[in-house]
């Protein structure tokens, strides 16, 4: 199950960064090492066929680029705009990955995105690191998945 979820998470995240932020997000290069350094993290909690939380975390410098691209203004985005941009990014990734995992007919309720600590305990059921213009961005999915939703054994 984990590989399927990780692939779906990577696809939803890459699509979001491409179409919402106008940047190309690539999978973690083989040379990359160590943990992702993150200055800000945002979480979106959801409920439905299964419940959980999606977390996006990245460095300040990358967030400035993403927010500027989204707004398309000459002026650099304010701190509030940057946080709002990250919340929208997380919201869109979450809304796009859930139908890929549970099926398009399933209904999920997403809560408003909120800032969280960058250090979350425990491991998610899926986690991807994508690289955008030299900076990493980490997307983690934490979920309590009922057996009925899990993939059958091969």
């Amino acid at each position: 199950m984990q590989a399927t979820w990780t692939r779906a998470l990577a696809q939803a995240a890459a699509l979001t960064f491409e179409e919402l932020c106008f940047v190309v997000a690539e999978p973690q290069p083989p040379t990359a090492q160590g943990d992702v350094r993150a200055d800000m993290a945002v979480a979106v909690a959801f409920s439905g066929p299964f419940a959980g939380v999606l977390v996006v975390q990245l460095e300040q410098a990358l967030l400035e680029v993403l927010a500027a691209n989204m707004l398309g203004d000459e002026a650099p985005p304010s701190a509030a705009q940057q946080e709002d941009a990250l919340k929208e990014i997380a919201n869109v990734i979450c809304g796009n990955v859930l139908p890929r995992l549970a099926g398009a007919e399933q209904v999920f309720r997403l809560q408003a995105p909120r800032r969280v600590s960058v250090a979350l305990p425990g491991a998610g059921v899926a986690e991807v690191v994508l690289w955008i213009e030299g900076w990493p961005v980490q997307v983690q999915l934490y979920a309590e998945v009922p057996a009925a939703v899990e993939e059958p054994s091969p």
Partner: peptide, 20 residues
């Protein structure tokens, strides 16, 4: 992304654009 909810919106006469 739920086709169920999107169909319900369409029945109320709303068009739909998916983010992103």
């Amino acid at each position: 992304g739920s086709t169920t909810r999107i169909e319900a919106l369409r029945r109320q006469g709303a068009a739909f654009v998916h983010k992103p």
